[in-house]
Simulated assay, not measured.
Amino acid sequence: MPALLDGLRILVLEDEFLIAMDVEQLCRDHGAADVTIARELGEVDGHALSARFDAAVVDLMLGDVSTLDFAARLRSEGIPFVFASGYSDREEIQDAFPDVRLVTKPYSGDDLIEAVAMACGRAKA
């Protein structure tokens, strides 16, 4: 059975360095071909996202900056993603992104990888 994230190029939008490193390692351990960490939106703005990434893990807040507009851009470009956050305003997220899974911090690696795989249509709910 191939790894859940086999061959995927994944964007990790996370401002906490250690968490970002953990997520990168998790993705690689589960077969991701490439993992790009961005700690602020400016690092990925202006790029054609769909040409670079197959999926994304998005922290809801980068410092005090909301990523919801960026998430809307991911959705409009057809890139599957999950939210990973310690931020707890679930209703706002569910209203805006009813089909996107929120994995709350501190999360287990299995939960996160499964959520990304499901978003990409590679795992059963």
Rank of each mutant, 00 (worst) to 15 (best):
P2H: 09
L4C: 04
L4M: 13
L4G: 08
L5W: 05
G7N: 05
G7E: 05
R9T: 03
I10P: 15
V12E: 13
E14A: 05
D15P: 10
F17I: 08
I19G: 06
I19S: 11
A20H: 04
M21F: 09
L26C: 02
C27W: 00
R28W: 00
R28M: 10
D29N: 14
D29C: 05
G31V: 05
G31T: 02
G31Q: 04
A33M: 03
D34M: 03
V35E: 02
T36P: 12
I37C: 09
A38S: 08
E40K: 01
E43T: 04
V44D: 01
V44T: 04
D45M: 12
H47E: 11
H47Y: 12
A48L: 07
L49G: 07
S50K: 03
F53L: 03
A55T: 03
V58A: 08
D59G: 07
M61P: 06
M61T: 04
L62K: 02
L62D: 05
G63L: 01
S66F: 14
T67R: 03
A71C: 13
A71F: 06
A71P: 13
A72G: 15
R73L: 09
R75V: 02
R75T: 00
S76A: 15
S76P: 09
E77D: 06
P80A: 02
V82D: 06
V82N: 11
F83I: 13
S85Y: 02
S88E: 14
D89Y: 03
R90H: 02
R90G: 02
E91C: 08
E92L: 15
I93E: 03
A96H: 08
A96L: 15
F97S: 03
P98N: 05
D99S: 13
V100K: 12
V103T: 09
T104C: 12
K105L: 05
K105N: 12
G109V: 04
D110H: 09
D111N: 06
D111F: 01
E114C: 08
A115R: 09
V116Q: 06
V116H: 00
A119E: 10
A119R: 11
A123F: 00
A123G: 11
A123M: 11
A125I: 07
